[in-house]
Nucleic acid binder design. Structure first.
Lengths: 146, 146
DNA sequence: GTGAATAGTTTCATTATTGAACTATATTAA
DNA sequence: TTAATATAGTTCAATAATGAAACTATTCAC
């Protein structure tokens, strides 16, 4: 491919990617997790899946510092969404888990996530989605090497 | 497609998309725009392309409030990257443009953006990239309708 | 010419983030 | 066994991004 064409493709890629993120974000804020920020929703989702989950896991997963995680978790502990529990074996470690309220919030949010994204994805053919997701995953694996 | 499969695909899509954004962001911070935040780089890029560009344009483009734009532009004006110039016809309007320093910063950043993304995209076939970008754009157009 | 609309700013509160210093605990090696 | 080091997490201070509401200045419409 010629450099010029490639650069055009990069321009298209970056602006499309930005717009997708922006719009998905708006959609999520409006229809999926009104009561949470996008970061909080993502973190809760991760904590729920990982189980047991520590601050360091989150910091690593989202590539942010541990102090940022502490701040975010504090807010959610205050709002009764997350519990902290110290490991009795190794008392440096603090395990995070969803409170019943947190579980409930996430059950509803996840349900709406599936509905909203499902509706959007229904406009694509199965093959198209799979191909797209495959390319995304390939992109992830290349980015991991960098 | 069955609901279960679709939901799995949604899980894969969301986590892949999150990881791509996260890693691209890290890559950009490290190799493309060390001296700027991602938001600032995106805004400068937009101002440069749009020309003439107003605060309202930016607010609309990035789907954020005008007060958020004012705050961001202030920081970049202070750093000598952006100039404000009032329209003499309609004195409510303020045009934004890159200062020579801003232009220089963006010339370098854009160059590095092409290099870095070009290297990553070189691992894909031309057809694969085009298909992926097409799906992205289709996604954008569906999201616009929502 | 007055009232409504538009462009942008100010102010205030919240959230997210980094980096450095710090506490507490566990591990290792002399 | 203890002294040095590593690990897990928190605290603190600063910067950035953001929304909402109140505001200023200007233009437009009737």
């Amino acid at each position: 491919m010629q450099a010029k064409e490639l650069n055009e493709l990069i321009d298209i890629y970056t602006s499309a990617m930005n717009e997708v993120n922006r719009r998905v974000n708006i959609l999520m804020n409006e229809q999926v997790h009104q009561e949470l920020t996008s970061d909080q929703f993502a973190t809760l989702r991760y904590v729920q899946k990982k189980q047991p989950c520590t601050s360091s896991d989150i910091a690593h997963e989202f590539a942010i510092g541990k102090s940022a995680v502490t701040a975010q978790i504090n807010r959610m502990v205050e709002r009764g969404l997350i519990d902290r529990q110290r490991d009795e074996e190794d008392r440096r470690i603090v395990y995070l888990s969803l409170t019943p309220t947190g579980e409930e919030t996430m059950a509803e949010g996840t349900q709406r996530l599936y509905e909203v994204l499902g509706e959007i994805l229904s406009e694509f053919s199965e093959q198209e989605i799979e191909r797209f997701v495959q390319s995304l995953e390939k992109l992830v694996s290349i980015l991991r090497k960098h």
